[in-house]
Computed example of a mutant assay.
Amino acid sequence: MRSIYLAGPDVFYPDFEQLVARKAELVRQRGFLPIYAGVMDYPVAPSKWQTGVAISAVNELLMRGADMLIANLTPFRGLAADTGTAFEIGFMSARDKPIYAYSNASAKHTERIVQFYNGERRIDSSGLPRGSDNTLIEDFEMTDNLMIDGTVALRNGRICVPPDGRDLPFDDLRVFEACLNALVLAECGK
């Protein structure tokens, strides 16, 4: 049975167990094995730092055993995807695995950056957009940073977002399910 690693900041939410159980069931219904952080017990270590390293090692082991990835790019604690999720995308990209992603946020990355600057944006003498602190605003009409969208596109994956332009609650699985369906269609149609 082929497996899908479910990446995202879901583990930080109080209802993580119920949320991941719902996702896992949808994955199983489509004939794939769900793999995700927390599916195995983590080793107990003598310090917080060592515990963190042990968790990282287990998650890398889980990804090594996965055939493909679905990443939750819904912005987490900032403008963009969770940093751990970005690492997981990079890890699976380096292994040349199929990568699919979704976000329950409808705004493009550029729009979120401009919101961060309270709508302030200027065009420099080269025609490039800059924020109030004079840093370049990435403007490629992408869901997240160009390295995230790019690696998904280069692996023939897809990033799904809410179709009606409205943000959805973090635990709403409609966009996740659309992403999963796109993956199944692509992978089973081969």
Rank of each mutant, 00 (worst) to 15 (best):
T143A: 02
L79I: 15
V20T: 09
F32I: 07
P75T: 10
G78T: 10
I113P: 15
I55T: 11
V58W: 00
M40I: 03
N72S: 10
P14A: 12
E60Y: 05
F170V: 08
A45P: 14
V58R: 07
A105V: 11
N72V: 04
P163G: 13
P43D: 10
L26A: 07
L168M: 02
M92F: 05
P169G: 02
G165W: 11
Y100H: 09
M147K: 13
S126W: 01
L136R: 11
V20Y: 05
R155K: 03
A24I: 03
A24W: 06
V184S: 05
T74K: 07
G131R: 00
L6C: 12
Y13V: 06
M40Y: 00
G165C: 03
I113D: 06
N104M: 06
E177K: 00
C188V: 00
P162D: 10
L183Y: 00
V11W: 15
K23H: 00
R77C: 06
V39T: 13
F87A: 08
P43W: 08
D67W: 01
L180T: 00
A105C: 14
N104V: 14
V152Y: 12
A71Y: 00
G84C: 15
G38S: 03
R174E: 01
A81V: 14
V39L: 14
V175D: 01
A71P: 02
D96N: 11
R64H: 03
M68K: 12
D67S: 02
A81Y: 08
G31V: 06
R28I: 03
R64N: 08
A21H: 14
T135R: 07
G119C: 12
L173W: 05
G38W: 12
V20K: 04
S106Q: 08
R121Y: 14
F16D: 07
N156W: 06
I35E: 02
A37F: 05
A107G: 11
N118W: 14
N156S: 15
N72H: 02
I70H: 06
R130G: 04
D41Q: 11
I55E: 06
S3R: 08
R95F: 15
I159K: 09
A153I: 00
D139R: 09
L79E: 07
F170I: 04
E187W: 01
A54E: 08
L180K: 00
R158G: 02
T83W: 03
G84T: 15
P163F: 13
V175C: 01
L73Y: 08
Y102L: 06
F170D: 05
T83V: 03
P43L: 02
D164Q: 09
E120I: 04
R121S: 08
L173G: 03
A153E: 00
F87N: 10
A178W: 00
S47P: 13
P163R: 15
R121T: 14
L73M: 12
S47N: 13
M68Y: 03
F12H: 03
P129G: 05
L19K: 14
M68P: 07
D82N: 13
P46N: 03
R112E: 09
D149M: 13
P129I: 09
D15A: 09
L185V: 10
G165T: 12
D167K: 10
P75G: 02
S125N: 02
D10N: 13
R2T: 07
